[in-house]
Design a protein around this nucleic acid. Sequence first.
DNA 1: GCATTAACACGTA
DNA 2: TACGTGTTAATGC
Length: 249
Amino acid sequence: MSTNNLVYQRRRRPTSLELSSIPWLQGLPDNEYTQAVQAISVAEVGVGETICREGRAATYWFGLIDGLLKMSKDTETGGSFTYTGVAPGGWFGEGTALKREAYRYNILALRSSVVAGLPLETFHQLLNQSIGFNRFIMNQLNERLGQFIMAREIDRMNDPEARVARSLAQLFHPVLSPNVGDMLRITQQELAYLVGLSRQRVNEALLLLQTQKLIKVEYGGVRILDMAALRLHMQSSTRRRRRGGLGGL
DNA sequence: GCATTAACACGTA
DNA sequence: TACGTGTTAATGC
């Protein structure tokens, strides 16, 4: 409920390790690099805290250094609808930043996270002068478009396994979230919130995906074994058996 | 039928 | 100890 601006008050300078995890910084020439680095600030965000809230004027272009975020929007009925997760290395809000509009969704932390912010002025300065920066943004927008089309496909599916599989694939998006690696630290409860299913059902889906050798379920996270298969995961035609079935197969 | 919530035992950090 | 996982039972659409 509280639209706290604590996130902004807690700003600090980024460490060199944090800077090295920002994908678009790496390709910039020296002068633009230092210009960007001087403007970037980071903040620690606790579980459940809001980074930006729907309707508030955009002040930063945000990126996730560490942790896990979710992008969601409040519904008329008082609930909330989750669009997607943001994994480390992911940057978001460029559409809003470009138009200097108000944020169109809420971003909140699913686990304690470190968020980086580039002020809007610097964002636009870089847009005006840096080809490398423009290339990154253009690519980002293109990928984002594909991501949202995929989100629509996921919504249309009623098969939980396929929804979990493709949601995982989105979290592991190699361009929008390049720093995830093979292992995604996310609890099954968090994933359940993200996908819109119960924890128990997500657990069941994960175990099935594991038997299909697409992932490895580990304590506190999931290891990706076959990214391509996850992304293309089709509706499973065969219905699973809930209990018993120890004969298996 | 299938998914959800609640509750539980168990393993791990 | 606190948390996350894997199961089962009861309940609802």
